[in-house]
Nucleic acid binder design. Structure first.
Lengths: 120, 120
DNA sequence: CAGTATCCTGCACGATACTG
DNA sequence: CAGTATCGTGCAGGATACTG
């Protein structure tokens, strides 16, 4: 078909890459997206998340929460009830990732189906 | 607002996470998405990609291309012209990632804008 | 041109123990 | 409960040199 490399615009290509890299920078880390997904189902406390996200350690959860908070993706709220309750929630900004997550989920689902078909 | 944790369905949450993890597994690695984006602008030869993807070494490009090929995201074609030309292209399957990339790009663009506003 | 082969290093992440 | 502190390690990824 396309024996010769098609005419292509390199600067256009690079301008496509930059924002993607930006996005990936925020989302880098093994657990960030999982945390965001968990919170997209409702606010959570530390221990709740730890149970829900299989395999994560307190250390990692703590670390990733901090980074997400710094980037204003999530919010940490302290309720000075008795006993004190600390709750994490998605910010508006964090919610703006839902499209990305949705597409990742869609693709992942298709992909999983494909894998299953093969391995039989 | 939601002082108490909302009622939530944990299994639903986990079923959301699994496919996302699957997707990320394929896309893991610093350069995979960049390679796919480059190829989405047209077929490329090895050296072309290396120039286009800033910072990638031959070693990494080779490695990531191999993995992408194994997962049938890209295709390697040898044209036995004189001299031999080797061309990489996206498969149909690889193209199916365009939605994901588009959303990452959209979000990344927004995010970059936000960052710029802040840093001033 | 289209890659390999070798060697090296940081740090992302895990395990475990501890704290107010 | 909601984390922190410490220590250890694999391996993703870089640098550099080489090959058919």
């Amino acid at each position: 078909m396309a024996m010769l490399t098609q005419k292509h615009n390199k600067s256009e290509c690079k301008s496509q890459m930059l924002p993607v890299r930006d996005a990936l920078d925020i989302l880098s880390g093994k657990w960030k997206l999982h945390i965001i997904i968990a919170l997209s189902f409702g606010n959570r406390r530390f221990k709740e998340m730890q149970k829900e996200i299989e395999g994560i350690t307190a250390r990692m959860l703590s670390k990733e929460l901090k980074e997400l908070e710094m980037n204003e993706m999530i919010k940490r709220t302290v309720y000075d009830s008795q006993p004190v309750i600390i709750e994490y929630s998605l910010t508006q900004y964090g919610q703006s990732l839902n499209k990305v997550i949705e597409e990742l989920h869609n693709w992942g689902t298709q992909h999983r189906r494909r894998i299953m078909r093969k391995s039989k």
